[in-house]
Design a protein around this nucleic acid. Structure first.
Length: 376
RNA sequence: GGGAGAGUACCCAAGUUGGCCAAAGGGGGCAGACUGUAAAUCUGUUGUCAGUGACUUCAGUGGUUCAAAUCCGCUCUCUCCCA
């Protein structure tokens, strides 16, 4: 359950307790879509990067290896060899990102599998059943995420549908949790707010879903095409109407600067593919800004990626070596880079929590919010 | 010594009925993008200098032609075959 330890203006320092362990918030969830953090990290690497929670994907695991198989093998935690908290995304985002391969109806969405083209149907009931089979700590409601810009009518339609689906998800989850042979009887459910960039839709939708007394509330459908000013405005508009005593999750966000901005607007947890994906592409985060390790200027650079970083990569390796590994297409390049970037993100959250504990978050904000997103 | 074939940009390689060729396509190089992961991906650029144009290029050299990477002579280099 969630408790707030301290606040500073709208920012919250909290603690989220689950049957798989405690999450100190604000926190970043490390994305492991298909049951692994891309770039070759194993569960035994996670302590080294200060990972508290992993995020896996319902759609991907349903397609491969299949949620029934995962259940048969003892659930996702056992399968992955990770005993800490796992949040499973519902597959709702794939409705959006696989837009070319889908058809939406009131009951759910018909997809073509990106793996073999096979037709797959997923709706709120199916998503809950799959997530129950996976046995994650937290299940996400099945929502419809619209791209921005999106016209008002369509945004409203999608938000309304997301609310109807949420009610189905809640009923289904209660039913599943009461069954005797489920992997995790205590599986939690988070609802997702939609409404594009329209403040009134967002607020109204949040008020609707708040009444359902869920384990947590997420803001979805941001960082999907709108400006960051619009994103901040929506988060600010939602802050007063979100349940105060429930954990708040901003889905898919973002850059270090986005995270600092949204912590200051009352968000507790985040997830984003940016640190891992960008790491695989050579884009690395430092306290002075973002570097591209592939650049020729690092050819003879004997310094670590970030002089102030004490991650396993920075403790041992130089920029020149990591650049070489990228040029030589060695898979170690990605592994070392992903380790660094995720350590950077998890450390950013540790620094944010420490600042909140000490009551110095506004100083931390001022010193970091702009420079961390700079490309240098 | 005799015969056959080949030399194209950093590398490999297309182009050889002469013009639409500064020259396809790869690779490599340089740079950019990436926000609930169809992403070890994608995009741009890669003769020189200026920048809606000019100049120098297709082993070297000399020709033919209004026009040559493309046709002809010679030279050099490499590969294969026969001695």
């Amino acid at each position: 359950m969630f408790s707030i330890l301290k606040t500073e203006n709208n920012a919250r320092r909290g603690r989220f307790t689950t049957i798989h362990g405690t999450v100190e918030t604000p926190a970043f969830m490390n994305v492991a879509t298909a049951g692994a953090i891309k770039g070759g990290l194993s569960s035994y690497d996670l302590a080294d990067i200060n990972c508290q929670v992993e995020l896996c994907n319902t759609y991907h695991l349903h397609i491969r290896p299949g949620d029934k198989l995962v259940k048969e093998l003892g659930g996702l935690h056992k399968f992955m060899g990770w005993s800490g908290p796992i949040l499973t995304d519902s597959g709702g985002f794939q409705v959006f990102s696989l837009a070319k391969l889908r058809k939406i109806s009131e009951d759910g969405v018909t997809f073509n599998s990106h793996v073999d083209g096979k037709k797959i149907f997923m709706g709120p009931k199916e998503s809950m059943q799959i997530q129950s089979n996976l046995g994650s700590t937290i299940a996400m409601a099945f929502d419809e995420c619209v791209s921005n810009p999106s016209d008002y009518d369509y945004a409203k339609q999608a938000a309304d549908r997301t609310f109807r689906w949420l009610q189905i998800c809640k009923d289904e989850m209660e039913k599943l949790n009461s069954k005797h042979d489920v992997v995790n009887k205590n599986q939690m459910l988070f609802g997702i707010n939609q409404g594009s960039v329209y403040d009134d839709l967002r607020v109204e939708h949040m008020q609707q879903i708040s009444k359902l007394d869920l384990d947590g509330y997420a803001i979805g459908g941001l960082a999907v095409g709108e400006s960051k000013e619009e994103m901040y405005r929506i988060v600010s508009a939602l802050n007063p109407v979100m349940p105060q005593n429930k954990i708040r999750y901003l889905m898919g966000v973002g850059t270090p600067g986005n995270i600092i901005e949204c912590v200051s607007r009352g968000v507790d947890i985040f997830d984003c593919v940016m640190p891992s994906r960008n790491a695989r592409h050579g884009s690395l985060f430092t306290k002075k800004g973002i570097i591209n390790i592939n650049n020729a200027k690092y050819e003879k650079d004997n310094l670590p990626i970030d002089e102030k970083c004490s991650c396993p990569t920075c403790k041992r390796h130089s920029r020149a070596y990591i650049r070489h590994l990228f040029k030589a297409k060695e898979m170690l390049a990605m592994r070392l880079s992903v380790i660094h970037n995720l350590y950077f993100y998890n450390m950013l959250m540790i620094d944010i929590r420490e600042a909140l504990d000490k009551g110095t978050f506004s100083d931390f904000y001022r010193e970091n919010v702009d420079i961390l997103d700079l490309r240098i």
